Amino acid sequence: MNTEALASFVKIAELRSLSAAAKLYGLPKSTLSLRIRQLETDLSVALFQRSGRNLLLTEAGLTLLRHARKILQNCDAARAAVTELSTDVTGTLRIGATGEFGTAFYAQMLIAFRELYPKVDIELTFFSPHMLYAADSFDMLDAVISWDEGREDTETLSTATFSLFASRSYLARAGMPDSPANLADHQGIVYRTPAGLQHWRLQKGMAQESILPRSNLIANDYWTVKYFAVAGEGIAYLPRFFTAIECERGHLVPLLADWESAEKPVSIRITRPHAASRRMAAFMDVCRRYFSPGFVFTGPRYYVEAIHDPNRPEEERQS
């Protein structure tokens, strides 16, 4: 039985869509379709049945999925065991992550790893936070990184704090808030979590505030929230590291400097600690060094550039 066909079958089964699997894993739909047909011909069964836009597993498909995951895990374990005999760090590293700050966080960390270990192949898969600990979704992953409250089986890599930010053009129109009480007079750009709208949770010493601002812009993507803030649409609640470049370039201004959120941990969980590999040990070493004091990232960084802002005062555009 062809392992590439089995791997393609698992990808399609998990996403319930040929198109979604092709897009997520960068494979031609025709290739995936051919592999499924080969499997069905080899086994003389139908593995999927269509329901609207989704592909649902038949009874035979459900049975194969259970065995396919075990087969692929055993193949990975055999490959890892042979690879460990080599002095080079090679093989495939499969990382799952929540998708809040993909390019500004996970991609940068993986580039730092690739600079040291170019022979390791990387597969990075983003998940919605509410799917994070669905065990059957992570059978094929080596580690999962998330922004959460931490678990006993995770290691905290770093922490981040959220603060408030707005553009100079917005502040020129609406004024600068000097206390959390003033935020009621301002327009917010609100992030939607799977559980609902995200409150702005701020603290200063022993004082704490939880604010849900008035808003006509809501998004479940932090990059979009930041874009709207740079465009002058209101105040955004974002991590400090995520707005560092925009603040350096003057596209965003930090507000209420003494008020910020509690520290939010960034955690990593090794999904198969019993099958530790040399590449996983190398990855953990790089992750720890990436967040250590004095580490300098030299790869490309992403940010929102305000090339044209129609709300910016005329004298600023001419300067």
Rank of each mutant, 00 (worst) to 15 (best):
I145A: 08
A166C: 00
P194V: 10
L183F: 02
V190L: 04
S179M: 03
E152L: 05
D185E: 13
F162D: 14
T156M: 11
S169D: 01
L171P: 01
E155L: 09
W200K: 06
Q198P: 04
E152H: 04
A184C: 09
A181T: 13
S169Y: 00
M176R: 08
A160C: 10
R173Y: 07
F162E: 12
A195K: 12
R168E: 11
A174S: 12
E155N: 00
Q187E: 13
T159D: 05
M176A: 09
S158H: 12
D185G: 05
A172G: 01
R201V: 15
R173A: 09
L183K: 07
S146T: 15
D185F: 11
E149Y: 05
S163C: 13
G175D: 09
L183D: 05
E155Y: 02
S179V: 04
F162N: 14
F165V: 14
H199N: 15
H199A: 15
P194D: 08
H186I: 03
T161Q: 15
L197K: 08
H199Q: 15
N182V: 08
D185V: 08
G196C: 11
Q198R: 12
V144Q: 01
Y191K: 03
G196A: 10
S169A: 10
A181E: 15
S158Y: 10
R151N: 11
A160R: 07
F165P: 06
R192I: 07
L183H: 06
D185C: 05
D148T: 06
R201C: 14
W147G: 02
T161E: 13
T156W: 00
L157R: 07
A184R: 14
W200L: 08
M176T: 12
T161F: 01
V144F: 06
Y170M: 05
R192D: 05
N182T: 11
S158G: 08
S169N: 00
F162H: 15
P177D: 04
